[in-house]
């Protein structure tokens, strides 16, 4: 597979992945571009990997985590989901979903990445561990902590909304 073919087939998926982990459209584009630049530089190696997309996805996720560790990183305000581009849904579900999206912004970068890889990318814990270079038990612990935090944040956000 040539680089151009890969980008044309999977490039947009990378931008989407960038958005689900960062919550920021511009940063999502930057993450996809950085991941693709790095992949392009060693494309022969990437192309010969068992799963080239897994390889590029790993670059993107780890670039995001490195980015958040830098002193210059500032938490971007979580973008409101664009209803124009969203799949039509029941009104209540959308409201719930938006609460959850805001609650996701309260998680640490690693917690959010683990949830994205698990529930958006549908990766098993072993694969997530491979992407992040940690043990599967750490993935499980991080996911469990993240879910607990989310439940609390979501409850808090709902109560706040009711009191207004």
């Amino acid at each position: 597979m040539e680089f151009e073919e890969y980008v044309s087939a999977r490039g947009q998926e990378l931008v989407r992945l960038g958005f689900t982990v960062s919550g920021d459209y511009q940063r999502a584009e930057d993450l996809a571009q950085i991941a693709l630049m790095q992949a392009f530089r060693s494309w022969r190696k990437v192309r010969n990997a068992d799963d080239p997309h897994h390889y590029v996805r790993r670059i993107l996720v780890n670039e995001f985590l490195s980015m958040t560790r830098r002193r210059s990183y500032s938490e971007a305000p979580t973008a409101e989901l664009d209803p124009q581009g969203a799949v039509p849904d029941h009104a209540t579900d959308i409201a719930n979903s938006d609460d959850l999206w805001r609650a996701l912004a309260t998680l640490s970068a690693r917690e959010r990445v683990v949830l994205v890889l698990r529930y958006y990318q549908d990766l098993d814990d072993q694969t997530i561990a491979d992407v992040l270079g940690i043990k599967p038990s750490s993935v499980r612990a991080t996911a469990s902590r993240a879910l607990a935090s989310l439940r609390e944040s979501k409850l808090r956000l709902s109560n706040k909304a009711k009191s207004h």
């Binding site: 992945l17 989901l81 969203a86 979903s97 959850l100 989310l150």
Partner: peptide, 13 residues
């Protein structure tokens, strides 16, 4: 809910 939220977020890109 998380799956749905991520799907919605991705679709909005």
């Amino acid at each position: 809910d998380l799956r749905g939220t991520f799907e919605r977020a991705a679709a909005s890109v």
